[in-house]
Design a protein around this nucleic acid. Sequence first.
DNA 1: GAGTGGTCTAGACCACCAG
DNA 2: TGGTGGTCTAGACCACTCA
Lengths: 238, 238
Amino acid sequence: MSDMRAAKATRTSFLDVRAAVLARIRARVWPPGALLPTEHDLAAEFGCARATVNRALRALSDEGVIDRKRKSGTRVRMVPVRKAKFEISVVRHLVEETNATYRYALVSRRAGPCPAWLAARLDLPGDHPMLHLRCMHYADNRPFQFEERWVNTEAVPAILTADLSVIGPNEWLLGAVPFTDAEIAMSAEAADAPLAEFLETAVGVPLFQLERITWLQGAPVTFVRMSHHPGYRMSTRY
Amino acid sequence: MSDMRAAKATRTSFLDVRAAVLARIRARVWPPGALLPTEHDLAAEFGCARATVNRALRALSDEGVIDRKRKSGTRVRMVPVRKAKFEISVVRHLVEETNATYRYALVSRRAGPCPAWLAARLDLPGDHPMLHLRCMHYADNRPFQFEERWVNTEAVPAILTADLSVIGPNEWLLGAVPFTDAEIAMSAEAADAPLAEFLETAVGVPLFQLERITWLQGAPVTFVRMSHHPGYRMSTRY
DNA sequence: GAGTGGTCTAGACCACCAG
DNA sequence: TGGTGGTCTAGACCACTCA
């Protein structure tokens, strides 16, 4: 034991392998497009099990650094695909992360048929029953986000009896209804008169808008459009 | 529960375990906050190795469905954290995905000291040498994106001799310089006079703007601000 | 202190696919 | 059709953390 080399003091972790491989890619030892040694060979070189190498390479593959194919082997990606992850969560958390006081208000609540433009978008019949909700979210009593939402009451009948005066529909839905698929879209839109009023700004001011549709096994659950206060920035590190 | 002999026809995959666990969470067998059985117990129940259960649960943990802690065990997340992934890649790919013809133009290129606001933002001295680039990206000859970029020429001296008239700085940098960290921010901004001219729109029109800073082991590499044509939507499914 | 997840090993079988 | 990655197993040790 005492004459063991320092390198073998710890068993080599998949993180070690990952770091070593990444270092060589960065150093252009394996330039973009190059073929890496096989898992077997790398395992031999690093003195670890193939499963360890496998996990390291799988991690790099998930990160978009390398591309793996059976038989052809592992190659360095020509253009690294870095994936930015956004945690789309609850507004309340967004606000509270800034150490601001969060406040929620239900603006309106009305059950009725699905509007035509939304029916087309969700691939629903035009008279499909929906619940239309409008809410405001405040940070330190300043407007933070205006939320306009339609909920498919056939998919989520329980929302008709839910008390949405205290807890927002976003949080209620997250806790009550799972979803299998979601689509989000971000854009810049000019404030119209109602938006300007709710967000206490002027008509025409650019607003960061986020739309989301969620489905539960093919059936649309809800559509929401979130319009943020002027100057809002959505950011992330990766 | 349903089939015993058929179930053993194939070895149980971690995907089977993942699906089964997810189904129970969705069915509220394990409601939000509930403690799941240990990996050992689940392995026994599913008739597989603990490593298989581990991989399944690790996947669910990565997806934000469950929360794992040593000793305390595995719990269902109160609020599922769904992570939307954006592949921040090259503009050219974005354009070509829409079956449009991509065109790139270098608008201006000037080496000089870092502007004060950027120096502050990047934590660089005010006179740090930078290369300032402005480019246009077109889709079917209609303005798609205006790119304004500063490159740290001390970190990337090679860019001073690179030919950026044909290939954009984005693609050039991706192929030439690795980065270890990045920060991106999205916002809605009103078009100013130059932007309106380049994007062929009116002053004040809301534009979807994306900023990114990249670092290589702590040293800032580049800052870029991409302003998109009016009506641009950035979307993803997850 | 003890229970739980985190990880590594050594070996094995399988699926896929380029030659 | 052989080589490569994908995965599972059975067992083991370790590290963190809660009681």
